[in-house]
């Protein structure tokens, strides 16, 4: 079993900013990221910004574990971590949950046809894998990010139509998506993007039984926290999983949370 002062779950800019602060404070830290690369959603917008944090992490204090996810959290902050093939068991004194957010699915008939993508999946395909799924696209949903429009335009993908969620009746196609039926008529395109905002990635918090609060504006559950600490001792939260904000605000969140964790660990040590 490995031992750490802090495990940061999620290597987006929040977690990266936290890791920089943790290494400055000389805390023995593990950063776990389920993707192949660091940076979360910011990778799609500003890779340089992501790297500016990665460069500042002191590897004498911070271990990076990519392509792995935290699979289970148990009593006394013991974690099981895996890449689907291995089993890494970790005992930590504190946890920072910075798992961010993910794209919201919407339900409609035939929503499981191939060539229907969530907007973040689409950004990943184009930005990270240089895949162009087609020449023209329809977007459905109530929250359209300007970066999505910009990326499509820069990739020479024609936006045939943008449809409100409530106008959509169904998608159709023989074995793959071909088009949609809406209250305003039928439309066709090479592929369909669903863009309806995000949900906080809060499974770890709920597994830990953290007290959650419903945010009326975002219509989602976020953890109750005081000075970044949740209702569970030693479990801290920062970034979009704590509340939806922009990248700069999340960066500040990440480093501030680690300062709070450092104080908490100091207090815990003092008590002994």
């Amino acid at each position: 079993m490995l031992h750490y002062d802090l495990v940061i779950i999620g290597g987006g800019v929040t977690g990266l900013s936290a890791a920089v602060e943790a290494s400055n404070l000389k805390m023995k830290t593990l950063l776990v990221e389920q993707g192949f690369t660091l940076g979360g959603h910011t990778r799609f917008f500003n890779e340089g910004y992501v790297q500016s944090f990665v460069r500042k992490i002191n590897n004498n204090y911070v271990d990076l574990l990519l392509n792995h996810s935290v699979v289970g959290v148990y009593d006394d902050l013991v974690l099981s971590i895996s890449d689907g093939n291995d089993f890494v068991k970790v005992q930590t004194k504190s946890i920072l949950v910075s798992t961010g957010s993910y794209q919201k699915r919407i339900s409609f008939p035939n929503n499981d046809l191939p060539n229907i993508y969530g907007y973040l999946t689409l950004l990943e395909m184009i930005k990270l894998h240089q895949v162009k799924p087609g020449n023209n696209v329809i977007i459905v949903g109530d929250e359209i990010h300007e970066m999505l429009i910009e990326t499509l335009e820069n990739s020479d993908i024609n936006i045939v139509k943008i449809i409100d969620k409530t106008d959509l009746i169904e998608a159709y196609g023989d074995e793959v998506y071909q088009g949609i039926t809406t209250k305003k008529g039928n439309f066709q395109s090479d592929f369909l993007i669903v863009s309806d905002g995000n949900l906080p990635h809060n499974e770890i918090l709920r597994m830990l039984n953290c007290e959650m609060v419903f945010d009326q504006e975002e219509q989602s559950w976020f953890p109750k926290s005081v000075d970044y600490m949740t209702s569970i001792k030693g479990v801290f939260v920062a970034g979009n999983v704590k509340s939806f904000k922009n990248a700069e605000e999340n960066v500040f969140d990440g480093s501030s949370a680690v300062k709070a964790i450092f104080n908490y660990l100091g207090e815990m040590h003092g008590k002994k």
Binding site: V71, G84, D86, I204, R206
Partner: peptide, 16 residues
């Protein structure tokens, strides 16, 4: 919301 249980991803028996 529903209670979340371990595991959030899969671990092979042999690794355990």
């Amino acid at each position: 919301l529903m209670h979340i249980r371990p595991n959030l991803a899969n671990i092979p028996l042999k690794a355990l």
